[in-house]
Design a protein around this nucleic acid. Structure first.
Length: 263
DNA sequence: GCGACAG
DNA sequence: ATCTTGTCGC
């Protein structure tokens, strides 16, 4: 049995070395295997829930946008959270916090973690699963933003990235057919034995035409979810677009909320 | 020194 | 991430 780890929350005041040390602690505390009670098949299908009796699981998507001050500098992050249940949006909340550090590859959660946790605090429903825009275990120290947030809150989580931070796909990832996956394993840049399964390249959508193709998503376990389940869930939740609905809706909401603040 | 580098 | 209209293709 695991429990929340507020002591591992991101702290932008730490030195780079301290941040990296904290990430190794997070990776140690993380569970990269299925450890949840809901049925993944009920995440998007409302009909599958009637037979199982209880309420469908609450799936949450998280994404960020950035606000600019009078001088034209990005000084605040806006984190948008959208909760869905049985395919329907049940709640949307957001939070704005000051930006404390610049974007540094590998340290994303120290830049965006605070607004995310603040936004999740505003949620009245309890998430059964959270999808993040960014990596989970596909990370130099196996502690991407999805892993960090999942461990701090002790909620099952998945990282959904649009590009690959590190690691090596075990095969060609160009022009994959929709529904297919390619394993991503650790390489020398990752703090794990070479060949460790980190996640999957996941092709949720693909063009029919031969001259152009859509790049896959890079899906990896955050916390309490195994790599195969993470890929399966991404495919299941990508009902009509490349991105799984929860992250796509959070993406849109982050822009909407930003615009309404600029006015 | 050179290259790689989520959002 | 963000600046942003039209435009190519099904």
């Amino acid at each position: 049995m695991s429990s929340p780890r507020p002591d591992l929350a991101p702290d932008a005041a730490l030195s780079r070395e301290e941040m990296e040390a904290l990430q190794r602690e997070i990776a140690d505390a993380a569970v990269f295997a299925d450890d949840f009670s809901f049925d993944p098949a009920t995440l998007s299908n409302p009909l599958a829930t009637t037979s199982s009796g209880g309420d469908p699981p609450v799936v949450v998507g998280v994404d960020q946008s950035f606000l600019t001050n009078e001088a034209g500098d990005q000084d605040r992050a806006l984190s948008a959270v959208v909760a869905l249940q049985g395919g329907e949006v049940v709640e949307r909340v957001h939070a704005v916090t000051p930006l404390e550090i610049p974007y540094i590859p590998g340290l994303l959660s120290f830049r965006e973690g605070r607004p995310i946790l603040a936004a999740l605090d505003e949620l009245s429903v309890e998430p059964d699963l959270i999808l993040f825009d960014g990596s989970g275990r596909i990370h130099f120290r196996q502690a991407g933003i999805a892993t960090h947030m999942g461990v701090v809150r002790d909620v099952p989580s998945i990282g959904v990235a649009k590009s690959l931070l590190c690691g090596t796909p075990r095969g060609n990832t160009e022009n994959l057919p929709a529904g297919s996956t390619v394993a991503v394993e650790s390489n020398s840049r990752v703090d794990a034995p070479d060949g460790t399964l980190l996640g999957y390249a996941v092709q949720t959508r693909q063009y029919d035409s031969p001259d152009r193709y859509i790049n896959p998503l890079y899906v990896s376990p955050g916390h309490r979810v195994g790599p195969e389940t993470a890929a399966d869930v991404a495919l299941e939740l990508a009902s009509s677009y490349k991105l799984p609905d929860p992250v796509r809706l959070a993406d849109t909401y982050a822009d909407e909320a930003k615009r309404s603040l600029d006015e």
